[in-house]
Every structure is written in structure tokens, then in C-alpha cells.
Amino acid sequence: MSTAQEKPETPYNFAYLDEQTKRMIRRAILKAVAIPGYQVPFASREMPMPYGWGTGGVQVTASLIGPDDVLKVIDQGADDTTNAVSIRSFFAKVAGVKTTTHTKEASLIQTRHRVPEMPLSENQILVYQVPIPEPLRFLEPRETETRLMHALEEYGLMHVKLYEDIARHGHIATTYAYPVKVEGRYVMDPSPIPKFDNPKLTNSPALQLFGAGREKRIYALPPYTRVESLDFEDHPFRVQEFSEPCGLCGASGVYLDEVILDDHGGRMFVCSDTDHCEGRREAGHRGHLAGAMGAPGAEAAE
């Protein structure tokens, strides 16, 4: 992990963006905080990475970050996958900030599609990378119409979609990007987090910001905001359950990834949150497959 430097060695401004762009994004973030769940349009910039790689989250992070921040970046819960590694090294380079993989040490966490397992604190900010910010987009392609639907609080179409799930599958089949209602007003896309993470959105002590670069939208959940997953009285919202605990650390009640082991149907379940899993293994927790994977620490080495 890099250490804080006095001056980042780059020809760019601190945190890459120019100051006028930061002001524009900062104004959008403050309006987003004042209207929880409402998508504020902003003049998204070209970033030195393709759309779909978290340009929205990167612009939000770049507008927030200061020399005292400690940054953590996760991709589907993992600190060591391409997207997380490249964004973390981007900010280490252009802002010279300290980075970490430990949730507890971070003041800023940029995330793609997961909320960390460890509960966040009031001193942390979670920045989500969002591909499609408009929860109604696949039901109504016209921006003029979806904007009017939000203005009129006309969300019947979303309930019809969930109802059609029930009619077809017998249950609500949406498992990620599960729509939520914020403070009883705006329906919001929580980004493609598994619905397992939806209960962590409500009443969080941490500020949550959402940035969609290609779609040019920023939205927010202030701390202690009421966030409800949409459901029906006879089909209440439920999160995923896993039949076995994490193969490496033995954790249950966390979100697990399925890993295929061979060509004969062999598979295992492991924590999606790598920091949480490593922390548990360091504390001596062992899953039933931990031995088969070699000594602890061997697979954690980069």
C-alpha cells in the first residue's frame, strides 16, 4: 500500500480533475444530499478509463478526496481485482493519498456492486459506481417520461414489474439492483448490489453517494435516511440465504460467491468481501475447505 506523499508526481491537478469541474460536481453532490434519492444531472467528464469502469464513482471520489483521506476501493467486495486495483493506484498517483484494504481504516470507500460486511461509521463515506441510475429505464426508455414519473411520484409501473415477477416465477425474481424507496418519496436504483445488501442502506451512519459517469447523474443517501425495498404485503422483501458457510473462514450471514473448482461439479462458497474474510481467518476462524486451500496467508499474498 502506498504512503502519503507531499506532492503527487503528476502533471495533473490534485486528484486529476480541474477545480472548475470539482466545483460543478460538488454543487451537484450537495443538491443530491438535500434531495435524497433524486438523480442530479451533472456534466460528467471524460476520464482516463472507459465508461463502465467506474468513471462516475471516480469523479465523485476525486471531488471529495483530500490529503488526509484514506481510500479503499472494492470491486464486487474484493480489494484485489482489476477495477479495484487500478482505481486505487490511480488515486495513489494523482492525489498521493494513503490507501488501504481494511474497511475499518478507510475514510472514503469507493465500491462497485457491494456494501462492506463490516458496519460503517459516521466518519466514513461510501461512493458507489453506478451503470444505470434510472430504476425505471428498462420499463420506460424516454428520459422525459421517467423524469415526469419521478416528479408525479408515479411508480405504479415498478410495482407491475415486480408483480409480473411473481406471476411468472412465484416470487420476486429481482436479485440485484433491487429498487428502493427513499424517505417515502423517490424510487432509487441502489446500483447493482445484491439485494442481500439492501438492508444495509437504511439508517446507515455513513453518507452514501452514487455516481453514474456515462449517464451523468449523481444521487445520495444522507446518513440515517429511511430506505425501503419495494415489496408486497403477501410477498415481503427477503434477502438471499446461503445453504453453507464460507469455505475459507466459516462465516455465515454474509454474502458468498460461488467458485467452480473442477469439471465434475465441484464448487465452493467463499466470502465476497475479501477484507472481511481475511480478517476472520487472521482471527483464527477456519472454514471446512481452508486446509485444502493451503496455509492461511498463502492465498492472500499478492
Partner: peptide
């Protein structure tokens, strides 16, 4: 310092308006 001055003020504003 225009860069770090504005950044410090913004974080204070963000905390003020989100709490």
C-alpha cells in the same frame, strides 16, 4: 491554497448539509 482550501470547505459543507 485554492485546491486544498476549497476541498476542506467542501467537506465541511458536505458534513453540515448531510447532518
Amino acid at each position: 491554497d485554492p485546491v486544498f482550501g476549497a476541498q476542506a470547505v467542501f467537506r465541511a459543507l458536505l458534513r453540515a448539509l448531510s447532518r
